[in-house]
Design a protein around this nucleic acid. Sequence first.
RNA 1: GGAGAGUUGCCGGAGCGGUUGAACGGGACGGUCUCGAAAACCGUUGUAUCCUUACGGGUACCCAGGGUUCGAAUCCCUGACUCUCCGCCA
Length: 424
Amino acid sequence: MIDIKFIRNNVEQVREAIRNKNEKADIVALLAIDETRRKLQFEFDNLKSRQNNVSQTIARKKKAGEDAATELKDMSTVAEEIKQISAALSASNTELEALLLTIPNIPQPEVPVGRDESANTVERIWGKPPVFTFEPKDHLEIANNNHYLDLPRGAKISGSGFPIYTGQGARLERALISFMLEFHLQKHDYEELMVPLMVNRKTMTGTGQLPKLEEDMYHVNEDDLFLIPTAEVPVTNFYADEVLSYKDIPKCFVSYTPCFRREAGSYGKDTKGLQRLHQFNKVEMVRFVEPEKSAEALEEMLCNAEAILQAFGLHYRVLNLCTGDTSFASQRTYDLEVWAPGSQKYLEVSSVSNFGEFQTRRANIRYKDSSGKVRHLHTLNGSGLATPRLMIALLETYQQADGSFKAPDVLKPWLEINLKERQL
RNA sequence: GGAGAGUUGCCGGAGCGGUUGAACGGGACGGUCUCGAAAACCGUUGUAUCCUUACGGGUACCCAGGGUUCGAAUCCCUGACUCUCCGCCA
C-alpha cells in the first residue's frame, strides 16, 4: 500500500498512477477521511491526556484520605466522551485502511505508459525460432502421441483446466520442477522453502491479491482459507509483522508450489491443452532487499529466470510491461515469453516484478538499517518458471519428425534415474 | 474432538486495579580504564501516531478484539497461537 503521507503530498502523481493502471480509487474520499481521522485523533489524545492527569490526582487524593468526588464526577463525563470519540476514530481508521488497500502501486518512471499489452515494449530477444524439416505439430498432439497427458480424465475428475500428467509426461513435469529448483539453489544461491498451499485472508491481503482479486481465487468457506495462486503469497508473507536486521538482508527464496487460479472471466481464451489452467506447477523466486538495491535485484532475477530458458535452449523474448499491463502491486514488471513453434506464438512463462515497499507496508515487513533506523524492505518476485507453457515450448521445440519427443540433454539426468540399477 | 497450562521489551523473567513504557538479570551499543583485549565501572538501548518550521510535547501499544472502572499489563468475556495429556487419524 502507499503511504498516506505520500498520497497527501503527491495527490496528482497518485491520480495519474491510478489512471495509467486502469484502476479506480476514490482519492477525494480518501483524503477527506484522512482529515477527519486526524481531527478525531487530536481530540482523543487531548481527552486522554486530561483523563490520565486527573486519574493520578484522584489516586493521590484517595491515598491521602481526601475527597475526590468532584474529580470523579468530572471524569465520568470525560470517560463517556472518550468512548464516543474512540468509536468514531476507529471507524475512520477502518474506513481509511479499506480505501488505502484499493490504491495501486505507482509505476516507476521508466515504465512505458499504455492501456494494454499492445503498449508493451520488447526489451530483448534470445535465440532464434527452431527450423523444422517437417510441419511442426502443436504440443497437445505430441503429448497425445506419447501418452504424456490425459486432459479428458482430468476434466472428468475435477473439471477442465486440471491436467493429469501420465507416464513419462509426469516424469518430465517432475524433472522440470527439480531441475529448476536445483538450478536456482546451486547456481543462483537461493534458499528453498516449502510452504502451505492454503493461506488466510490477512496473508492474501499482505501481497495485494485481496481485496481486488477475491473472485480469481479458490476459497474454502469453512475455514476462510484461500488456495494460493502463486508461491509469492506464502513466501513473501514469511516475514510478515517482523523487523529484520540489515545483516540478514538480502534474503532470496525459491519455492515450488502448485498454483490455483479460477481464471474467472477468461473462459474460452487460450484453452487449448496446457495454455491456461486452474492448477499448474511453478517454481517461484522471491527476494527481500534494501530499498536502494531493488532495481538491481530486478535485473538479476530476470537473468535468473532467463538462465533456465537458456539452459533448455529455448527461443524467447523479454517484454517491458506498460503501465496498464503491470499488476496492481507492481512498480515495474518484465515478462518472459517463450516461443512455441507448433502454435507459432510467444507464451508467457515468467513475470518478474519489483514491488518496492508496497507489499512490505501491507504485510508490515521492516528491517533495521545499519544506522538503527527502521524502514520498510523492498520485495521482488519472479517465476522461475511456470511449467505448463514451458512444457509446451519444450514439446514443440524438441519434437521429432516421427512425432516423438527428445528432451534436451540437461534434463537427461532427471529423466533417467534408474533405481533398479542402483540396487535400492 | 475432550481436559489442562501458557502467551510481558532483543532474550530470560517480575509485576497488589492508581508516578509501570514496564522491576531484576542477560545481550547489544557508547564511554572510562588498557599497548591491545578481558574484567570492572558509568551511560544508552522500542514502535506507531498526532501537534510543532524547529526545540519539544501529547497519545497508543505487555497475543488480538470486546467489556467492567474515574483509572486495566493487572479483573471479566470471546478469539488466535503454543505446550502437555486423552481420543481419532495420515
